[in-house]
Design a protein around this nucleic acid. Structure first.
Lengths: 349, 349
DNA sequence: ATGAAAGCGCTAACAT
DNA sequence: ATGTTAGCGCTTTCAT
């Protein structure tokens, strides 16, 4: 072995701390001290070590160190969402990353497509990698399987949907309240014929929004059994077709509530397709880009994904920092943004 | 220590393979065989091991195993994008994840905000975690610092932007061709007064799109020096203001090319704000959700982020599987989608 | 079919 | 200020 300061050309092996130590003429422990910024290293020694590390392009192995390190932190977080492709999830993800990056924490992300099996697999995949914490939009009906992991002290925060079968922190929008607000808004314009376009009934959040909307209608004298409440509309295409059927039916709605951003996109297409976008009211749950530039603008109950992500990450880090408070249920309020579509009155009788 | 089949209540420690072995009454190596599906384990033994593992909620430590494992694969990929919040990046991310999940590979994602320092930090953070490969939208002017890592055989694929200072695989849109196509499309409608709204000049992709647009205009007799080519428009707000200034100026454009999805959003706002959305042509690079529902619909040069992500992931996995072919430069073609805004003719003189 | 011993790259605990 | 020894949880290698 030579002691050239340039690494070999051709395929070279990944240098270890031992190799850095040899090149610098010190013991491994001294390299460890320098790399980790521990005290009691002579400046001249530190320089020799850093030079050696640089000339070998040395990168410490976080996982190897972690194996023996007392805190056993991988400085890694796992995030599970419906899809990293969804704008809501993207905003949440970004907020979590912003909270994590300053702490040197990297974020794993995984898309579940609301499939319970994928949730189990993704959680297992992350736990095998020893993430320090988990932030998840659950797809399963019951998360009791996480109980042992929670008992071990792993911070787990549920976002967007409340946990079931375990006690754990959660951060979610005021789904019931936001949907109720949408109903009130439409009722105030005098509407009496509504339609509800909902996401998968298996999703707790979707059920809350449905309840918020329908309960409010019922409380205001609308016969709820007559309100078409179409569920399991998980993508724009299905939502579009469902609304087309209602519009083509005998008693088309004068006001529509779409319970999720993908559903809103589908509803907008259906209304446009039948030329009803100027005479049928629409309020969507969750904001959509360019909603303000459509004609009419789309009135929405906006969520605050940045807040949800930030708060969830803060809860995880608080727990990692020793916070032992009992599980908290954080509710993030929604904001009604009126842009036109929700203010369309019913046709004069 | 008791041998109850239920784990302790209260905070319990994370079980190790050794504890599973003790509970099952076998050696550690036998547990390892069962967990990894290696042959030569009696069915009865395997059952005892699995029962023990289940009752302890055992999760193998991937990183500990990896330390000694001959292939040294973490089954982890690092993805660097401008922001996980950007729809283009979201689609790329999802495609990569789809390619990775079947191989049991987890994906780290990191947002760079086109900041070269964040790129260096994020790359280092991922290499310390020993990702098997890196897929990155580079923010730096020169990536020679990755040379040693490439020599070690780590698969690195550049997406969206070509590498500089290193030879490495890349997968990107036909930026020059797509922008040229936009110019031809507008020229064919008879436009003579253009505006170019561009992203940061430091971004190679942005320069390519600018060149594609302006060269095509020049080649068709348009005096390019007279075309306002505003650059460094990185967010909708800046783009909106830039276009407002042009529209309010002495010689407003009759046709606008916006070089990126955020810029297109800003341009749409500006046109609408001045009431010019029906008389000023607009073509955007990269598609935008709801672009088809605006009036007029937004004509775009659509990219194919799913293809870019999928191909990049395939390149990484091919290299991991031993492919030693030289660096490839994959160009993904774009698709012009005409929806109205790009077909607006110039005003009759 | 099963197990014992060594070692992966690093840090903890204790020398010196 | 620096080094030595043991060991983290697992896989490798080699016995039995």
């Amino acid at each position: 072995m030579t002691s050239l300061s340039k690494p070999d050309p051709g395929t070279s092996a990944r240098p270890t701390m031992r190799q850095v130590a040899e090149l610098a003429g010190v013991a491994v422990k001294t390299v460890s001290r320098v790399i980790n910024g521990e005290p009691n290293v002579a400046p001249a020694t530190a320089r020799r070590v850093l030079d050696a590390a640089r000339s070998l392009d040395y990168q410490p192995d976080l996982h190897a160190g972690n194996l023996r390190r007392s805190d056993r932190r991988t400085r890694t977080l796992g995030l599970l969402v419906s899809s990293v492709d969804n704008p809501f999830a993207g905003a949440v993800h970004r907020a979590i990353e912003d909270a994590a990056v300053g702490r040197g924490v990297a974020v794993f992300a995984s898309s579940l497509d609301d499939d319970p099996d994928r949730e189990r697999e993704a959680v297992a995949a992350f736990l095998r990698r020893r993430v320090d914490g988990l932030i998840l939009t659950t797809a399963s009906a019951n998360q009791a399987y996480l109980e042992p992991e929670l008992r071990r002290g792993t911070p787990i925060v549920f976002i967007d949907r409340e946990p079931s079968g375990v006690e754990a922190d959660s951060v979610a929008s005021d789904n019931f309240g936001g949907a109720a607000r949408a109903a009130e808004h439409l009722l105030a314009r005098g509407h009496r014929r509504f339609a509800y376009l909902g996401d998968l009934h298996s999703i707790q959040t979707a059920r809350e929004r449905r309840r918020g909307f329908l309960d409010t209608l019922g409380g205001n004298g609308i016969p709820v059994d007559d309100v078409p409440a179409i569920q399991d509309l998980h993508d724009p295409e299905r939502a579009r077709q469902a609304l087309l059927r209602l519009l083509d039916g005998p008693n088309p709605p004068t006001a529509v509530f779409s319970s999720q951003n993908r559903v809103t996109v589908g509803a907008l297409h259906a209304l446009r397709q039948r030329g009803h976008h100027r005479d049928t009211a629409l309020v969507g749950f969750d904001d959509v880009e360019l909603a303000d530039l459509l004609e009419p603008g789309v009135t929405v109950v906006a969520q605050h994904p940045e807040d949800i992500g930030r708060i969830a990450a803060e809860r995880v880090f608080a727990k990692l920092d020793g916070d032992a408070s009992p599980p908290q249920r954080v509710v993030v309020s929604t904001t009604l943004i009126t842009r036109g579509s929700g203010e369309i009155p019913p046709p004069a009788v």
